[in-house]
């Protein structure tokens, strides 16, 4: 195939139009950006997994007999599971943008991502980082607080023996809590066997099982912290 002019024409255009190669810094910045995004999504994914574990281990499985499967089903940590999926997708996307990201199949990339999340997420859970992270989120994020403390409104059914909220007053026999709807409840805690060990304080977020006795009056059988 005889073709001698295209290269010459192209180089003449490059000179005429004064085309300069894009700076190497731009490409380096892109590389740094995508690798940083990969690492960050891995770390955040690991945190998400630690919070999934925390949600699963603190899911009041022992109340299954009393309140049934529906109760357990509604209180699973969907928010964190959803977030884990989102960060896995993001991690896979950013990895694809790296130089050789395309060389691995989606199954391999997602598999490695999940393995990393499970390994480091479990470590974060074991060392208590998930609790610290969750508390920090509750303190600074009202949206998250609503998701956690009103999840499925499962714990806001005093007629079914389930009550939750924030402690506003503490006395010897009773505490007052404000529930998710803003109602103030007086809760008798006399029958709690571990009453002295609980060390209840104002602003603690608690879940109570028991019986409703009167308007906004509740007798606690068991009390747990969120």
């Amino acid at each position: 195939m005889e073709n001698k002019n295209i290269s010459q024409i192209a180089i003449e255009r490059i000179k005429e139009e004064k085309i300069k190669p894009i700076s190497r810094k731009v490409f380096n910045l892109k590389k740094i950006f995508f690798w940083t995004a990969v690492v960050l999504s891995l770390i955040i994914g690991a945190f998400m997994f630690s919070l999934v574990l925390s949600g699963l281990f603190n899911n009041d499985w022992d109340l299954y007999d009393r309140f049934g499967f529906n109760f357990i089903f509604k209180t699973l940590p969907y928010f964190w599971l959803g977030s884990l999926v989102v960060f896995t997708v993001l991690g896979e996307y950013y990895y694809r943008q790296t130089l050789f990201g395309y060389r691995h199949t989606i199954i391999v990339v997602v598999g490695v991502y999940m393995a990393f999340s499970i390994l480091f997420g479990s470590a974060f859970y074991i060392i208590g980082a998930s609790d610290f992270f969750e508390k920090a989120l509750v303190d600074v994020t009202p949206v998250y607080r609503n998701i956690i403390f009103n999840r499925g409104e499962v714990w806001t059914h005093p007629e079914k023996g389930l009550l939750s909220g924030k402690i506003t007053e503490v006395s010897d026999d009773e505490i007052k809590i404000v529930d998710g709807d803003g109602l103030i409840w007086t809760v008798n805690v006399n029958s709690l066997s571990d009453r002295d060990d609980l060390n209840l304080k104002i602003n603690d977020q608690v879940k109570v099982t028991g019986d409703i006795m009167d308007d906004n009056f509740f007798i606690a059988e068991e009390l747990r912290f969120w």
Binding site: I6, P21, I22, S23
Partner: peptide, 13 residues
């Protein structure tokens, strides 16, 4: 092809 060469040069770094 001309465009290819120009694009290649532009992205050479």
């Amino acid at each position: 092809l001309q465009d290819v060469f120009i694009k290649t040069y532009y992205n050479l770094n």
